[in-house]
Amino acid sequence: MPSETPQAEVGPTGCPHRSGPHSAKGSLEKGSPEDKEAKEPLWIRPDAPSRCTWQLGRPASESPHHHTAPAKSPKILPDILKKIGDTPMVRINKIGKKFGLKCELLAKCEFFNAGGSVKDRISLRMIEDAERDGTLKPGDTIIEPTSGNTGIGLALAAAVRGYRCIIVMPEKMSSEKVDVLRALGAEIVRTPTNARFDSPESHVGVAWRLKNEIPNSHILDQYRNASNPLAHYDTTADEILQQCDGKLDMLVASVGTGGTITGIARKLKEKCPGCRIIGVDPEGSILAEPEELNQTEQTTYEVEGIGYDFIPTVLDRTVVDKWFKSNDEEAFTFARMLIAQEGLLCGGSAGSTVAVAVKAAQELQEGQRCVVILPDSVRNYMTKFLSDRWMLQKGFLKEEDLTEKKPWWWHLRVQELGLSAPLTVLPTITCGHTIEILREKGFDQAPVVDEAGVILGMVTLGNMLSSLLAGKVQPSDQVGKVIYKQFKQIRLTDTLGRLSHILEMDHFALVV
């Protein structure tokens, strides 16, 4: 994948999101292997301009796509893939009243899908469409860049269908997702969380590099694949309309690839034109409109599966009536509230959605109805927002919020430890010299600072030695090549209790 991002070429006709291997024109390309080798690009942008032909009021008969309808489940399912879809609609009884809503608040519980998330729908649909058009064949390999849930859905379907599955996901995604993927037989590649989507090191860039190296491999490409919004247009939206008897006044959905909100909203605009569509985008993402909503100094966020630093091709923002931004604290607070007060075992993005819903639905009156999409299960986040310690460490809970008995030293300040200034190293000294210094002084790690004293990161003896043994660096290389740029900081005025929580999850903390 090139470091400079080429513009994806656009073909003359058809839909841009065809499933299957992508040609340089962004659509299915038939021909000899030699032709494909000559024409197939190194990668295709996940934010390529959409060429979708959908228009409100256009006859369904003019759609270029294969459409399906929700099917009634048999008493005995032939395999677990038949437990994807037909998820329950559940009334939220307490939270709406707590925040003064007059309307009825309903939750579409997508964590009841077989793999635990709304992404099971698009995973199965992308595979079925690729099999139907002859792209996927027995023994082929599926590769997908994902925040985890699409990966789980694909790995689940691949396990049943017999495909090899490789999932490329950023490091910030939970260990629970990784464990589930491994249990399903998927191979996992992790990428830096802070890598831009168009960087060769991003999950998108690495996935395309693997595709170019592995024979008979395919990126189904949830960011561009029409099967993504079509899955929701054909099934999720129809289920909502049936469950609500066609009567709903507002739908609120958090947005990642945009397939969920695009597919549902398009069908609702056709069948229930008075329904307002509300999009939820986390602070630090750029999906919301108008652009002024996205202006923030924050560039990272903890909530998973929603928000991006690019506009995915499948996201149709014209069908969203209003956007709201959400933050991590309210997302996790509301997710825990949904679990504790409503018994809905949902993930953090569901918290984002409901946090926005109780604001947006203030305009609705008694007798009206708001539906929220709860995308995934708490299963993926047992060591994250479900953990009091994690919430404390991230600053989303305060010590006084917890009532468990603490040891005698818990409320003492870090400054009472009488710490001395640490050994520091410059980023320009060599790895070999740094190892000598650390061994001589008896230290395992040291902060790396520039000549102005600005902290650049941390270097550890173990990481340097393993990097040297693996051949990633040489003793003569500058130590700046092996620094940890993500590390926890703590102030002298913070409590030892807070430091204790940090050290339970990290090997060190830097006192500043």
Rank of each mutant, 00 (worst) to 15 (best):
K83L: 11
G134P: 06
Y163T: 00
K36S: 02
T150Y: 02
D221C: 06
K97H: 08
I127S: 06
Y163V: 00
T5G: 09
K97N: 12
G162E: 03
L210P: 00
P64W: 02
P74G: 13
R276S: 03
H17E: 10
L184C: 06
S254G: 05
G26P: 08
W43P: 10
V10P: 08
S50V: 09
L220E: 00
D179E: 11
G116K: 07
E131T: 04
T150M: 04
D234L: 15
A195E: 07
Y163M: 01
L156V: 06
E176Q: 14
G20T: 09
D238V: 10
K30N: 11
R276A: 12
W43E: 06
A130F: 06
V189D: 06
K39M: 13
D249A: 12
G274E: 10
S73H: 11
E201R: 13
M126Y: 06
D133Q: 10
R196V: 03
N228I: 01
S19M: 08
Q222N: 02
L154K: 00
I142K: 01
G151W: 02
L106Y: 09
M169T: 07
N194R: 03
V180S: 09
T146Q: 02
D129H: 09
V206R: 01
A158H: 02
K83D: 10
A237V: 14
A226M: 10
E40A: 10
K108E: 06
E62Y: 14
L106N: 07
P138N: 13
A207P: 01
C275E: 01
A159Y: 05
A157T: 13
A186W: 00
L136C: 08
K211V: 13
W208I: 12
A207S: 08
D79M: 06
F111D: 03
G116P: 07
E62W: 04
I219N: 06
L77S: 02
L220Q: 02
T53W: 04
D179M: 01
Q222L: 00
A155Y: 06
S3D: 03
P16K: 11
V255S: 02
G134Q: 06
Q243C: 06
T150W: 00
K25G: 08
P229Q: 05
R51Q: 10
H17M: 08
P46R: 01
S32Q: 11
V118Q: 05
A186N: 03
D120I: 05
Q7N: 10
A207H: 01
L220D: 00
R125K: 11
C109P: 07
N228A: 04
R91F: 07
A186Y: 00
V204Q: 08
T13H: 07
V204G: 06
S19Y: 09
E4F: 04
S147Q: 01
L220A: 03
K247P: 07
A159T: 15
D133T: 09
V189H: 07
G14A: 03
G258Y: 00
E62S: 13
K119D: 01
E62P: 11
F99C: 11
L28Y: 11
L154N: 01
I80C: 11
T262M: 07
K172G: 01
E171C: 03
H203L: 05
G258W: 00
P138S: 14
A155S: 13
K75E: 05
N216D: 12
R121N: 01
D120S: 06
A186S: 04
S123Y: 06
D198G: 07
P70H: 09
G96R: 15
G139C: 09
E110V: 01
G256C: 00
G162T: 05
K211W: 07
I84S: 08
K72I: 10
A48R: 10
E131G: 08
E29I: 13
C272D: 10
T135Q: 09
T235V: 05
L56C: 09
W54G: 06
R190E: 02
G274A: 11
S227V: 01
P200E: 07
E270T: 05
Q242Y: 12
D238G: 10
D238M: 10
T236S: 08
T193N: 13
D79W: 05
E144D: 06
L156W: 00
M250G: 01
A8D: 09
K72S: 03
T262S: 14
S27Y: 08
I84P: 07
A71W: 03
G205M: 02
P46N: 02
G11K: 09
A195Y: 05
A155G: 09
E201F: 13
A24D: 14
A186M: 04
S73K: 10
A107S: 06
L251H: 05
L124P: 08
P273I: 06
S23C: 04
Y223N: 00
N113P: 06
L220P: 01
